[in-house]
Each structure stands twice: as C-alpha cells, then as structure tokens.
C-alpha cells in the first residue's frame, strides 16, 4: 500500500503552463518565454520567446513558438534568463 507522493516530471511541466520558463537545449542554446503548452513528445509551445546562444541574447520573438522536443535537455520553471 504505497501512497508515496511521486513527483512526476510531466506534472511539473504541466504546472508551469502560464508561467515563465527557461528551456535549455542540448547545445549552448537557451530559450526564455511563457509556457503555453506541450505534447507527449515534450515539444513545447512558448510565447514571446527570447533566444540565447552561449549566454548571449540573439533574438526576441513576438507570438508563439514551437520548440521541437528532441533537442530539449532541461526545463526550468519560473525561468532563469541567462545573465552573467
């Protein structure tokens, strides 16, 4: 009878919907924006994204962006824009 409260990763992502999030890709790239949603493959839709490459901002977006899940390494709820 295990009533262990397991923290499921996908639940954490789900709770972040509507909040800001930083998404770290497998390489030196990061995206900061508001999480709109995600799917089973953890493709992610974010709004008003800021794209960082090697900790430098390279582009700001308006509207929604679909980030493909196969390059995503980490998601940080609440977001932490790369700043030195």
């Amino acid at each position: 009878m295990s009533s262990v409260s397991e923290i499921l990763p996908l639940e954490v992502i789900d709770k972040t919907i509507g909040q800001e999030v930083t998404i770290l890709l497998k390489d030196y790239r990061e995206f900061f924006g508001t999480l709109v949603g995600f799917d089973d493959y953890v493709n992610v839709v974010i709004e008003n994204a800021v794209e960082y490459l090697e900790d430098q901002e390279i582009k700001r977006f308006q509207g929604k962006m679909l980030l493909t899940g196969n390059n995503i390494a980490m998601l940080i709820p609440g977001g932490k824009p790369a700043s030195n």
């Binding site: 790239r29 995206f31 977006f61 308006q62 509207g63 679909l66 980030l67 493909t68 390059n71």
Partner: peptide
C-alpha cells in the same frame, strides 16, 4: 522535420 529546432510566428 528531424532538423527543425523551432517554428515561430513573426
């Protein structure tokens, strides 16, 4: 598709 990083609105 396998090479796509993102698709974003303008």
């Amino acid at each position: 598709g396998s090479q796509v990083l993102y698709i974003s609105e303008k």
